[in-house]
Structure formats: structure tokens, C-alpha cells
């Protein structure tokens, strides 16, 4: 699989290339700003775009805006955004519409290489990856609602679902069996009146809609 990187810090770009190579990606182009990213994507049409959010010249949300443009033109291209800070507002922009093949994570998550490699593969395969911090920010917005009916464990599971993890991923994280996770999920979906869906990304979509994204 081929990837394009956009990151204005040279040091970090070198690290990202190494991690992508570990994950089995071939880095076909590196850009230092949003304009360079768009040119590189146009030229290479990669399978995955890995981009920083805050880049020259404005240092605000250039990466998010570039990603939206890319998704408009190449809806199937997987995009993983990295940022020093994650903001639920940018996540909402990014996830409006098609949420498959989208990721939004804190930069420091790259340091946990094994987990990040898994995220890269998941997003490239059409999955979703939301930083736990984004999910907690989304929960901050909810007011006196069905969320209060969830048990502490169910809330944990819901957060992991919103991050885009599969049943197996959630089970591994919580050190429980997959069937236990399945039970929790069923209970959550019925308490929140969410539709049951088999495909992972449709389930993520339902959860994110519930949390007020898109």
C-alpha cells in the first residue's frame, strides 16, 4: 500500500516514515504543507494519507481542510489526521458524511508503535479511528440523557466503540471475552435506541451520530 505524508516538522516526518514502513506502507511522497499535500495526492493517488492538522501558512486547521477536499474528490482514499491537540469540532467536520477510512489522533499516539500500526491498517482498510480524547470531548457535550442509564462498564465500551475499535479490539483492551463485549454492546444499543448493525463502520456511525457528530 502506498502512503503520502504531510507534516511540517522534519524530525517528526522522519519518524512517521519509519513507522509507516514498519506497518508495511510505501511512502511515495512527503509534503510540508497543505498545498504540497494536495499536489502529492493528485500526482500519486495513494491508498492512505497521513497528515498533520496544523501546518503553514496559517497554523490552524489546514490539514482538516485539505482532508475535506481530498475526500470530496477521492471518497475512497483513507485519511489519518494527526494533531498536537485534538478538537471534537474538527472531528465533526472530518466525519460529516462518509466516516469510513477516517482517523483523527493525537500525535503522541504514534509513539505507541504497535497500536499505531494497527490503527494505520484499520483506517487503510476502511475503518475508523478516533482519539479517546475526542470521544471524551464529545461526551462533555451531552446533557442529562440516556448516557446516564449506562453502567460504568457500558460507558467504557461505548467510548471504545466510538474510537472505532472492533469487538475483538475492545475485548483485548478491557481484557474480557469477545462474547462479553457483544453482550455489553447489545445492552448499550438497546438503552440508547440505536439500530443494530453488523458492519463495524455502520455501528461506529450510529454511535457517533448519537454523540452529536455529523
Amino acid at each position: 500500500m502506498r502512503a503520502v505524508i504531510a507534516e511540517d516538522s522534519v524530525l517528526l516526518r522522519i519518524g512517521l516514515v519509519k513507522v509507516l514502513e514498519i506497518a508495511g506502507f510505501e511512502v511515495v511522497a512527503e509534503a510540508a504543507d497543505a498545498e504540497g499535500l494536495l499536489t502529492a495526492v493528485e500526482q500519486h493517488e495513494p491508498d492512505l494519507v497521513l497528515s498533520d492538522v496544523r501546518m503553514p501558512p496559517g497554523f490552524t486547521d489546514e490539514g482538516v481542510r485539505a482532508s475535506l477536499l481530498i475526500r470530496q474528490r477521492w471518497p475512497d482514499m483513507a485519511i489519518l489526521l494527526l494533531s498536537q491537540y485534538v478538537e471534537e469540532r474538527y472531528a465533526a467536520d472530518l466525519l460529516s458524511g462518509n466516516i469510513s477510512g477516517v482517523g483523527y489522533l493525537l500525535k503522541q499516539r504514534v509513539a505507541d508503535v504497535d497500536e499505531f500500526v494497527e490503527v494505520l491498517r484499520r483506517v487503510a482498510a476502511g475503518g475508523t479511528a478516533l482519539d479517546p480524547q475526542v470521544v471524551s470531548q464529545l461526551l462533555v457535550r451531552r446533557h442529562s440523557d440516556p448516557l446516564d442509564r449506562l453502567t460504568a462498564r457500558e460507558r467504557e465500551v461505548l467510548e471504545l466503540m466510538a474510537q472505532g475499535r472492533s469487538n475483538a479490539g475492545i475485548a483485548e483492551r478491557l481484557v474480557v471475552s469477545e462474547s462479553a463485549v457483544g453482550k455489553h454492546i447489545n445492552s448499550i444499543l438497546s438503552k440508547l435506541d440505536l439500530p443494530r448493525a453488523d458492519a463495524d463502520h455502520r455501528r461506529v456511525l450510529a454511535v457517533l451520530r448519537f454523540l452529536g457528530v455529523s
Binding site: 516538522s9 524530525l11 517528526l12 519518524g15 500525535k107 504514534v110 509513539a111 505507541d112 508503535v113
Partner: peptide
């Protein structure tokens, strides 16, 4: 400082993994 720290953590992570 933030970028340097992140890139240091990433390199240490890469070292651990490789």
C-alpha cells in the same frame, strides 16, 4: 519543544518495535 518531544517518543517507540 512539543514536536521534538513527540519525535523523540516516536523514535523510542520505533526502537522498541524494531
Amino acid at each position: 519543544a512539543q514536536q521534538r518531544l513527540v519525535s523523540m517518543a516516536v523514535n523510542l517507540g520505533v526502537a522498541k518495535a524494531t
